[in-house]
Write a protein that binds this DNA or RNA. Structure first.
Lengths: 137, 137
DNA sequence: AATTACCCTATCTATTTAATAGAGTAAACA
DNA sequence: TGTTTACTCTATTAAATAGATAGGGTAATT
């Protein structure tokens, strides 16, 4: 199941991408328009800023804005920040690899075998989609 | 993240599929060979039996066995039983559809848009893989 | 009839998710 | 320079879920 964090994060990013100008948008504005708890959204936007997806500006007229063009923002990056590893088990993770302690041999492990295919399928989707693809025309 | 329930279930199914004969295998045997808590495994095998994947036999020489040939057992069915809906959000689920209460319009929802593609990618994998594909040669 | 192994119910703990509160800090503008 | 505005951080809490465990009951073989 997709976490609300990811759901909210995607909605916020899409909201920013849909702005005509590139002026900063306040948290309060996004939270109101997208029905998201303001405090929760705060922490989500913060993590997106710290990982280089968003920029922020303080003071009057401040808020959050996209640093790159929507079509330059890959879903692989966004999903890893918001949802964590794309792989469903650490033993098939590209960026967060870990050996399963209860598994004697990855090469003959059926879970590994299936989850490798699942990972590849998901990666393909996330690599082929950018934020621009999520904005409705 | 994949739940341990699913992980254990897949390992147990693969273990059964790898048997030379089709004699029932005891829970204790599977739990020992695959490093799985016996009681937990009990409940997993039970749900696989109730959904028509496994059969069971009581008394001496009893245990669990596959009802169908491994290549007839689709991962779509197995995953739905063990892990639940394949879709990550209910609004794109084929078998467990539900409207998101916080989303005004699915057609313009970015989460819906992305998760639809993710669902299709995952479905494709699960439809194209059977239990037979998980057994190492 | 006794054995073997499945079947069911209940409980407990740890972890994670989601939401909330409150105080602190930095930047913009008059 | 001071005030406003809005971002930033820490901590707390409630709810849900996962995972594990215990113990008793029941059905089918031999």
């Amino acid at each position: 199941m997709l976490s609300k964090k990811t759901k909210y994060g995607l909605k916020a990013l899409t909201f920013l991408a849909a702005q005509k100008d590139k002026l900063p948008v306040q948290i309060a504005e996004i939270s109101k328009q997208e029905n998201i708890s303001q405090k929760f959204l705060e922490s989500i936007l913060l993590s997106l800023r710290k990982t280089g997806i968003l920029g922020s500006k303080k003071g009057k007229g401040g808020g959050y804005y996209l640093i790159k063009e929507p079509k330059e923002i890959l879903m692989t990056d966004v999903m890893r920040i918001l949802e964590g590893p794309i792989a469903l088990v650490p033993c098939v993770s590209l960026n967060f690899y870990e050996k399963c302690e209860d598994c004697p041999d990855e090469k003959t492990c059926s879970v590994n075998k299936l989850m490798l295919k699942v990972r590849d399928a998901n990666l393909a989707v996330y690599r082929n989609n950018t934020l621009a693809d999520l904005v409705s025309i």
